[in-house]
Amino acid sequence: MAIAVFFVFAALAIAGGIGVISFHQPIRSVLSLVVVMISLSVMFLLLSAQFVFAVQIIVYAGAVMVLFLFVIALLGPARELGRGRLRFQAWLSGIFVLVLFGLMYALLQGVQYRQPEKADLSIFGSVQWIAVYLFTNYLYPFELTSILLLVAAIGAIYLSRKRTGIDDL
């Protein structure tokens, strides 16, 4: 059962990834990315990461994707025109990607797995379990992310402010 679920959603994720890079209209790329996000959330559930699953659906497939859709609605439908002005870009990209994929394949072949730490799998990945570590061992990085989000919010407001005079440019 789990094997069938894995292969169905892996095929869906790869199809969505191909859709992201091959559709010509940005809105179709965004909707393909939503397919990838939801397939990956099923993968997180298979790996018993329940809290990461919920965050993936709410934050990624919900908030971030809606932000992308708003920007596309704001900018209007832009279609890509032909080829760029860099010569041989497609060929060089193809060679680079082949090398990258070969490198990752070699890494996957040589990966050495450590012995698992025998955690209690009945609570593994649950909200309580994540929260205990998030608010004890990793409290400092957790608080730092709040500063990061504050800086990002201030930056977004500054970038989208209304410009009145020549001094504001």
Partner: peptide
């Protein structure tokens, strides 16, 4: 999941935060 260790999941949550900030800016 393979190591049955919590740090990977916490790091994934942190990287989601960074991705959200990156998308906004």
């Amino acid at each position: 999941r393979q190591l049955q260790n919590y740090e990977g999941q916490l790091f994934a949550l942190m990287s989601m935060t960074v991705a959200a900030a990156e998308a906004v800016v």
